[in-house]
């Protein structure tokens, strides 16, 4: 009789099922029509199968986004789980596309699928990377901008995981403020 080690054939389940979305900027179509669901996964192995199969963020055309959200949450402000939320925003300069973009995005994905924020991970909705000529952006979206303790815990763990210097600060903005702003900057609700 052969005894098989379950580690050899059972995939490692994640806490959540995740959906990866792709946005391609085609000005002849509506914003929603440009957004496509690529795939869903709920194991460590299936996460890597997808990640290893798709283009790195730094190879995408300007105007494209990847979004990774918990199953059932759409990557838009209007979703019920997002509309009272906000995002920790990382803005990158042009040099950082080559130096930092891909490793920051992978680290962001690992924080999400690995539930790196402990109990506060329940407030994480997803993350988005925007590829833009004027500067790329990465953001972690959470569900409630008024949950100060959870939001700041998520921000400080995230900043540490990205290896950002202590003297550098990152800001958290509510989607309500971002969607109603008049200028190019949105006020920070929190900074870490």
């Amino acid at each position: 009789q052969e005894i098989v080690n379950p580690e050899a054939y059972i995939k490692h389940p994640l806490q959540n099922r995740w959906s990866l979305w792709f946005f391609k900027n085609d000005k002849s179509k509506t914003w929603q029509a440009n957004l496509r669901l690529i795939s869903k996964f709920d194991t460590v192995e299936d996460f890597w199968a997808l990640y290893n199969h798709i283009q790195l963020s730094s190879n995408l055309l300007s105007g494209c986004d990847y979004s990774l959200f918990k199953d059932g949450i759409e990557p838009m402000w209007e979703d019920e789980r997002n509309k009272r939320g906000g995002r920790w925003l990382i803005t990158l300069n042009k040099q950082q596309r080559r130096q930092d973009l891909d490793r920051f995005w992978l680290e962001t994905l690992l924080c999400l699928v690995g539930e790196a924020f402990g109990d506060c991970s329940d407030q994480v909705c997803g993350a988005v990377v925007n590829i833009r000529t004027k500067g790329d952006k990465i953001a972690v979206w959470t569900s409630d901008y008024e949950s100060r303790d959870a939001v700041t815990h998520i921000g400080s763990v995230y900043k540490q995981r990205l290896g950002l210097p202590l003297k550098m600060t990152i800001g958290y903005q509510s989607h309500a403020d971002t969607s109603t702003k008049s200028g190019s900057t949105t006020k920070n609700r929190f900074v870490v």
Binding site: E45, V113, G114, E115, A116, R161
Partner: peptide, 20 residues
């Protein structure tokens, strides 16, 4: 409890042969 996986554990699976 929550299924939490740290980065090194997750990275260890990046190039594992696929499960069948």
């Amino acid at each position: 409890g929550k299924r939490q996986y740290n980065r090194d554990f997750l990275l260890g699976f990046q190039f594992m042969p696929a499960c069948v």
